[in-house]
Deep mutational scan, measured.
Amino acid sequence: ENVVSAPMPGKVLRVLVRVGDRVRVGQGLLVLEAMKMENEIPSPRDGVVKRILVKEGEIVDTGQPLIELG
C-alpha cells in the first residue's frame, strides 16, 4: 500500500512529515480534523515519504489520497 488515503472527510490541520522522511508503521503522518476532533493519521507501513498530496488547511473527502510512500 503506497498511498495513504483519508479515512473520513475533514480538514488537514498539520502535516507531520516531509518528503524524504523515513517513517515507521503507526507513526503519525498528518492530523485531520473531523467533527471538531483531531485525528492523527498513521503510516500503514515502514517506508519513505515520496510525495505529500495535500496542504495544511485543505478540505479532503473520504478516500482522497494524502501521502505517497516509497
Rank of each mutant, 00 (worst) to 15 (best):
V19N: 10
R24S: 01
V19P: 05
L32E: 08
L16N: 09
G57F: 10
L16V: 08
T62N: 09
K50Y: 04
L66M: 08
V31D: 03
K50W: 02
K11M: 09
V12P: 15
G26W: 05
T62G: 01
L13S: 00
M37V: 09
E1M: 15
N39I: 10
G26V: 08
R51H: 09
V31L: 11
E68N: 15
I41D: 15
V3F: 10
D46C: 14
S43C: 15
E68S: 15
G10P: 15
N2E: 03
E40C: 14
V3M: 02
R22F: 12
D61R: 05
G26N: 13
G63S: 12
V17G: 09
M8K: 06
R18Q: 01
E33P: 03
K55L: 01
I59Y: 11
L16S: 09
V12G: 14
K11C: 14
K36P: 10
D61F: 02
K55T: 11
G10V: 02
K11N: 10
R24G: 09
M37K: 05
K55F: 11
V12D: 15
L66C: 14
V19A: 07
V23K: 05
M8T: 01
G57R: 00
I67Q: 04
V25C: 14
E56R: 05
E68P: 15
L30Q: 11
G63P: 08
V60Y: 09
R45I: 04
E68H: 15
V31Y: 08
L53T: 08
V4F: 08
P44Q: 06
P65I: 03
R51N: 04
E38Q: 03
K55E: 04
L16H: 10
V31Q: 12
L16R: 01
V17D: 12
G63K: 04
L16D: 08
I41Y: 00
R18N: 01
I52R: 03
R45A: 04
L13M: 12
I67H: 03
S43P: 05
R24P: 07
G70K: 11
K55V: 02
P42V: 06
G10N: 08
R45E: 12
E68G: 15
G63F: 08
I52K: 00
L32I: 12
M37S: 06
G47Y: 14
M8Q: 13
V60Q: 11
I41F: 05
K50A: 02
L30M: 00
V23G: 12
V48E: 06
Q64Y: 05
I67Y: 01
V19E: 12
V48Y: 01
E33N: 04
E40A: 01
N2P: 02
A6C: 15
